[in-house]
Write a protein that binds this DNA or RNA. Structure first.
Lengths: 116, 116
DNA sequence: TCTTGACTTAGAGTTAACTTTAACTGTTAG
DNA sequence: CTAACAGTTAAAGTTAACTCTAAGTCAAGA
């Protein structure tokens, strides 16, 4: 299959239809096509894009920043540098976050071992 | 030094005075003492507690859950088991989260390398 | 044909976690 | 003595990210 209703897409990407419409309204998903009855039709590349949005969001990027990234993406290779700079900066942020999580993990483990 | 005004404590733990009062109002910081003029006085163990709150919060625990943990903590060793069960469950959540972050890191790195 | 169910929209409501305001009090430096 | 400053309170306001409601449309099955 390569076309999905909003219900099917929402199952596929594990987001509610509400959220998918919200993301679209916020400009994160441009060009979602509609059928003759006005119902959204998601393509595989839409799902891929949503997958990457989930990745950025899951690593702490705000929807506003994700939109900025998406807008650069829309402008193709003209904005390749800016886009990649954003990703590289974000990569550093993720690395830092993993470090912090590991530190916090140790704190929690120490507390568990403390037994008081 | 071992006593801090709210301003000093807020610098120490890198949270605003607003946030410290808010945490207290939400029951996360019981027994914050006050001086004769009614001003909060933070002790070293208050700062330690705030540090652990930041650890739990930074690993995705909600303030509501953090309060639950704190409430168990207040009840001493009677609730030791429950408390540690909470921490162990949270430990798993952190481990899972680190895994997810690493997966997302790879996705971002792949996108960077893609060069399109 | 009728009804069921998934969809549509605009706009209102919710939640968590702050953050600010207003009006006030007490401490300290000049 | 007084002005500036750091603190106090209760309550209102803010923000991000959803989440839901109301009113309606459309297609498919009994």
């Amino acid at each position: 299959m390569s076309l999905y209703t909003i219900g099917q897409a929402s199952e596929e990407v594990d987001l509610t239809p509400y959220t998918l419409r919200y993301y679209e309204k916020e400009g994160l998903l441009p060009d979602v096509t509609k059928d003759s009855a006005g119902r959204r039709k998601y393509h595989d590349d839409d799902l891929q894009r949503i997958g990457f949005i989930k990745c950025l969001k899951g690593t702490g990027m705000s929807l506003k920043q994700i939109k900025e990234y998406g807008d650069l993406y829309e402008q193709g290779k003209a904005k390749f540098k800016e886009r990649n700079a954003m990703l590289e900066e974000h990569r550093e942020k993720i690395l830092q976050e993993i470090k912090t999580q590991k530190k916090y993990l140790k704190m929690v483990e120490a507390k568990i071992e403390m037994k008081i």
